[in-house]
């Protein structure tokens, strides 16, 4: 085994395929980071909507969650890639398609995590907040969400890791992420063992750092 194939293609694999820097549309991180952030933010709304007292907010949110949890991610990506451009009569870039698909899909999972997290905070906390005159929104912002987020950390990080790895699926529509970059290099140089071992290490280092960081946050005595 020689690492020559890695070093000679390092720029392409890491700078472009992994980070997504440079003058082309690609990159694992460039897709994963906004997908995680936006998916989680949308997930907060979905999760809170699932808990809404009014049915016309709760029921659509429930349908949303049940639908996207029930279909494969690949299918959602294909939907965005083939069907939406036809409906809109405009071509969409791979990056936009992949990001939108991930955000929409993952928000369903993040939403369920948020819902469970909010429900894990005891009703007494809300009552105490309301009894002090805080509004519903203030109670949510200052009392429930900070505690819920803390309780959510393990499930949240697991989901972020899943999402991070799932970005490799974007390669099926031609998006050049780390996996696709390795594939391109392999087609040229036929060094599958070195290349796929290398990208496995890159993925693993990232996900392992995420779970270590999460464990540190959980242990932190003082809260948010």
């Amino acid at each position: 085994m020689s690492l020559e194939v890695i070093t000679s293609n390092f720029q392409f694999l890491i700078v472009q395929g992994f980070f997504g820097l440079g003058s082309f549309a690609g990159g694992t991180l460039r897709l994963a980071v906004p997908a995680i952030v936006l998916g989680f933010l949308l997930g907060i709304f979905v999760g809170l909507a699932r808990l809404a007292a009014v049915p016309w907010i709760r029921i659509p949110a429930t349908i949303y969650v049940e639908f996207f949890r029930g279909v494969p991610l690949v299918m959602v990506i294909f939907w965005m890639w083939f069907i939406i451009p036809q409906l809109l009569q405009i071509p969409l870039p791979e990056y936009g398609v992949a990001l939108t698909a991930f955000v929409i899909f993952e928000a369903a999972y993040f939403g369920e995590i948020v819902r469970a997290g909010v429900q894990s905070v005891s009703g007494g906390q809300v009552e105490a907040a309301r009894a002090l005159g805080l509004t519903g929104v203030q109670s949510m912002a200052y009392v429930i969400l900070p505690q819920a987020l803390r309780n959510m950390i393990p499930a949240l990080v697991t989901q972020m890791i899943v999402l991070f790895k799932d970005t490799s699926l974007a390669s099926i529509i031609g998006y050049v992420d780390l996996t696709k970059a390795a594939q391109i290099v392999n087609n040229r140089e036929i060094k599958p063992f070195e290349l796929y071992l290398f990208i496995a290490v890159v993925y693993w280092v990232c996900t392992y750092s995420m779970s270590r960081l999460a464990r540190r946050m959980e242990r932190r005595p003082s809260p948010v």
């Binding site: 005891s122 007494g124 906390q125 009552e127 105490a128 907040a129 309301r130 009894a131 002090l132 005159g133 805080l134 509004t135 009392v143 900070p146 505690q147 803390r150 809260p223 948010v224």
Partner: peptide, 22 residues
Amino acid sequence: NLAKLRTRVGMVFQQFNLFAHM
């Protein structure tokens, strides 16, 4: 105006209900 009413009426609960993260 619930908030206004509640600022004038304090309540203490059996289970204390202190905010655990503060």
